[in-house]
Simulated assay, not measured.
Amino acid sequence: MINKDFSRRNFIRLASLGMATVPLACKSTKPMATQQRDRNLRFLFQGDSITDGNRGRNADPNHILGHGYCFSVASKIGATYPDRNLQFFNKGISGNTIIDLENRWQQDTLEIKPDVLSLLIGINDVNGFINKKKEANNLTNFEQQYRKLLTSCLNQNKEMLFVLGLPFCVPTGSRKNEFDQWHTPTIERAEVVKSIAKDFNAVLIDYPQVFAQAQKKAPLEYWIWDGIHPTVFGHELMAREWMKQVSNRLSFLKPLVYSI
């Protein structure tokens, strides 16, 4: 049962506790073939509305990556290394759950043949759980389907690098008065992602911790306007953390991290 006495003041403390449980193996300690590669890489960003970023649905290169964290990541990397033939794809779709991803995985992931797959999913699964939707997944099924998707990628490319983001929710906007309902199931799914990241030797991006630390500099509303969707400033924080963590596996990104 969710503790009804939870307050906004506990947010940083709880996020910090969550960070402490991240397995050391997730810290990108194992060598991979991708660690030394810096050319001809295909980066694919998958997920829900946070990744979608209102991206274009045609070939217009001005809008194809949306206006979220993946746009910021791609713009920085692509502008810095125009000679390395790096390609970036955004296939996030607003409202998607893990089931939705599974239904379009072949076309929107496997057929793209990414070398680096960045995935952020789970908050819409929380929404389905809270609102008792017929198609909602329980925690066990969420984990099974998540693992199934990553396994299918390894069957295609055993050297694929996974970048897994933890789902997050904060007490702002429309989520402020409902945070007691949202907090625990979000944390539960984040713990599942941590376990999967360890087993798949993935880069783990702890977005909850990023925003907990950001709260020390500005109110949460400055970073996430409705409890789920980041502002432009929040997306930039996500992009910076993404590059920081991924640079531990793709060392050519290190200069970008140092310049931030």
Rank of each mutant, 00 (worst) to 15 (best):
R39H: 12
T140N: 11
L24G: 14
V22Y: 11
L44H: 02
E191P: 06
F71M: 07
K132N: 12
F200D: 04
A136P: 09
L17D: 10
N90L: 02
G47V: 07
V193Q: 09
L17Y: 06
K30G: 11
N3E: 02
M238P: 13
L117S: 01
I121L: 09
V73G: 02
Q213D: 12
R57V: 11
C70I: 03
V116E: 00
H235I: 11
H229R: 11
F162A: 04
I224F: 06
G95D: 01
P171E: 00
M238V: 15
N248V: 09
T97K: 02
N10Y: 03
N141A: 12
A214T: 07
Y258M: 14
L139I: 12
W225D: 12
F6K: 05
K134W: 00
P208E: 03
R57L: 10
F142T: 01
T34S: 13
N103C: 11
V163G: 07
S174A: 13
W225T: 15
L253F: 15
S152K: 12
D5P: 06
D52E: 04
A214G: 11
F179N: 04
N124C: 02
I99Y: 00
V126S: 00
Q46P: 08
N3R: 10
M160V: 15
E188W: 02
G128H: 02
K148N: 11
V116Q: 00
E241S: 13
A25V: 10
T151I: 08
F200P: 08
L250K: 09
K91I: 01
W223I: 14
V203T: 10
Q213L: 14
Q209G: 10
A74S: 11
N103Y: 04
M19G: 15
W225L: 13
N157Q: 08
P31V: 10
G53E: 01
S16N: 15
R240Y: 06
K132Y: 05
N131C: 03
Q209E: 10
I260M: 15
D115P: 03
Y69E: 04
W242Y: 15
S251F: 15
C26K: 05
S49R: 04
K158A: 09
P167H: 02
